[in-house]
């Protein structure tokens, strides 16, 4: 459609898409898309990101509603955990009779 009025040609807002796979336990970010509103974003996400039988559930959220950490803060936020491997619970033996581990 090249002959629409310029006033309605404004870009649709950007949405981020999260899909939960059939055996996946959590929704995973898979990409982004444009849509006019929330419901259209769900439909678009279905059409764009679940075509190959990937998903059973979709979340969408307006990209401008996401608050993200800044790359400038990378060191103060994340570097301190880089040398604290003891935070993983891998330093003790699990007894054989403990289920679901």
């Amino acid at each position: 459609m090249t002959d629409e009025q310029p006033s309605v040609r404004a870009e649709w807002p950007l949405y981020e898409v999260f899909v939960r796979g059939k055996r996946g336990l959590n929704h995973v970010h898979v990409g982004s898309l444009h849509a006019a509103d929330d419901q259209m974003a769900v439909r678009h996400a279905r059409d764009v990101y679940t075509r190959r039988n990937e998903g059973v559930s979709i979340w969408v959220v307006r990209a401008d509603l996401i608050t993200a950490s800044s790359p400038d803060e990378k060191d103060p936020l994340f570097a301190p955990s880089g040398d604290k491997v003891y935070r993983h619970p891998t330093f003790y033996a699990i007894p054989a009779d403990v289920p679901h581990m």
Binding site: V19, G21, R23, G24, N26, V28, H29, V30, G31
Partner: peptide, 9 residues
């Protein structure tokens, strides 16, 4: 990958 967890086994 961003697709980790989507794949089943």
């Amino acid at each position: 990958s961003i697709f980790d967890g989507l794949l089943g086994s």
